[in-house]
Design a protein around this nucleic acid. Structure first.
Lengths: 145, 145
DNA sequence: ACGCTTACTTAGAATAGTTCTAATTATCAG
DNA sequence: CTGATAATTAGAACTATTCTAAGTAAGCGT
């Protein structure tokens, strides 16, 4: 038998899941691959639609379960704009999000290493932030990441 | 007849509404006053509960309508954490939000004048942000604004 | 390999927050 | 005062998500 996945991602998914005492399953693999393949911040419904092309029997509940599991394992970030549907993002680098109000598209904005520290520095004493989120809203030119 | 509101807020509400071609109504006034009185980032339901003490016949739909109207007029900011209920904030200064994960409380973090510019500066060419939102998550000491 | 235990998946019901609809009421301009 | 427009209202509808309970699969000790 050929060792699985040896040529693709060196099973980040399986490793990170195992770190949390969880299993890699076919459903989790296909959901994760969908996120990696097209990094356009899809909603759960959009992930569901894409995943069904490979695995037509998967349920929407499972897609939600898988996504939530990956968020818990820090494999994926959940992103929210106002009260719109949650979007999912497999970019693990520190980054902000730019929400294009015309098109609805979401773009990752990579952050220079010191920026989050600078932002954190505005917190008065007594505040201890475990995470910072930065969201831009506006208009983006057509040529964007 | 005594001139109304001459001693309280010099009718910011009525002015800002008029700027958008809208009327000041009893419902809008009481909703706005509720927001000003206790600035704890209440949800629409919480606003509804408070408003009904002064105006028991108001409807929840009207509370939503009033809040949305005020957001449109830039009298109030809508704040969202994940997919929780929208919260409302009458603080018009540039500020970030700190979401205390233990208590669920929200605190305003005033921003130094240059910070938003610095943050904006991380945007690559082609991105034109009309607004930036900064959200901290973590733990806050008991003595907080 | 066998059974046991726990993890995972599934379909559908339930839920929360919000928005919509259609009818009523209030306000403004002439 | 009258007609037009704006605002309010109650309740239905909607959307995204979570819950429930049952079924399926996988790892583990023997």
């Amino acid at each position: 038998m050929v060792s699985p996945n040896s040529n693709t991602t060196p099973d980040l998914l399986a490793r990170k899941l195992a770190d949390s005492g969880l299993r890699s399953t076919p459903q989790r693999e296909v959901v994760f691959n969908v996120l990696l393949k097209k990094r356009d911040h899809p909603t759960a419904d959009e992930v569901y639609a894409r995943v069904r092309q490979d695995m037509p029997t998967i349920s929407l509940a499972t897609v939600y379960n898988c996504l939530e599991t990956m968020v818990q394992c820090n494999l994926v970030r959940a992103v929210n704009f106002e009260r719109g549907p949650t979007r999912y993002c497999p970019n693990l680098r520190p980054h902000a999000h730019f929400h294009d109000e015309q098109t609805g598209a979401t773009h990752d904005i990579d952050l220079p290493p010191n920026l989050l520290e600078k932002v954190n520095a505005v917190l008065p004493r007594g505040y201890d932030a475990s995470s910072v989120e930065i969201i831009f809203r506006g208009k983006a030119a057509k040529n964007a990441s």
